[in-house]
Amino acid sequence: MVAVTPETGQDRALADAFEAAVAADERVEPRDWMPEEYRASLVRQMAQHAHSEIIGMQPEANWITRAPSLRRKAILMAKVQDEAGHGLYLYSAAETLGTSRDELLDKLHAGRQKYSSIFNYPTLTWADVGAIGWLVDGAAITNQVPLCRTSYGPYARAMVRICKEESFHQRQGYELLLALSQGTEAQHAMAQDAVDRWWWPSLMMFGPPDDESAHSAQSMAWRIKRHSNDELRQRFVDIAVPQAETLGLTLPDPDIKWNEERGHYDFGAIDWAEFWDVLKGNGPCNEQRLSQRRRAHEEGAWVREAAAAHAEKQAQAHVQHEEARV
């Protein structure tokens, strides 16, 4: 893997060719020359995305054993399984940039790479499973659909697969909430409570406002990102407001109002202090999520070692067998 800072004339030419290709919407493929910062930026974003998928299994897996009907249990199991699969696609895509899954997991476990802060919130009731599907997956899809056209080929291809599979995630969440909203009084209250707790954190998923976002401008120029945080957030609000009406649930923001002039819904100010605080590790579940992840990894070490040892023995036996034949 060659990664050069464009100092010499030849490198300058490579960098120009790269910028031109990206600007022309061509895809960058693993063995192409790319600026070191582009590579680092991609690894960071893909790792964070992959980590979010596998940490994101936890709040939902929390309800697999308590799902209230067998149909819901099957749906939830399949959904959590998809998240493992999505993490896997993304780690594989990141590996094409010369890193390894082990390295990325080590960084996650050491707290040196982030995952989406949304998963540091707890799932307190069954309705939270629905709210995650509708709002959290809804926000994620809004973010992810443009990534299907991101400039790095393996990332874009992973995202195509992921988006295709995710479409059931959001629908099942919406359907789950609708059943609760139209169910008994207690069920309706459960659904409203979940939406009240998940709405604001979902809006925070799009990241800080454009003028405070550290990596946004460069990522946009390289077409890793294709829309700004605020643009996507607005798109999500515009979609969610009428969906909430159909659900018969209210969104916990008195400032939500259609703005004829802008052609968008206005909404209230986000509490960014909470966002930064959760990001720093002070959310309700940061420690719990990370320690469960570490524990699963550590407790699985002997299994991974055993399979590797067995493969090694088989390979040796094969060599000996071949030698004996010669």
């Binding site: 697999i64 993490g87 896997l88 699985g300 299994v303």
Partner: peptide, 14 residues
């Protein structure tokens, strides 16, 4: 189903 999120490796989760 209790294994979800606890498997020794991602491939085994699936």
């Amino acid at each position: 189903g209790e294994w979800a999120g606890h498997a020794p490796v991602l491939e085994e989760e699936v």
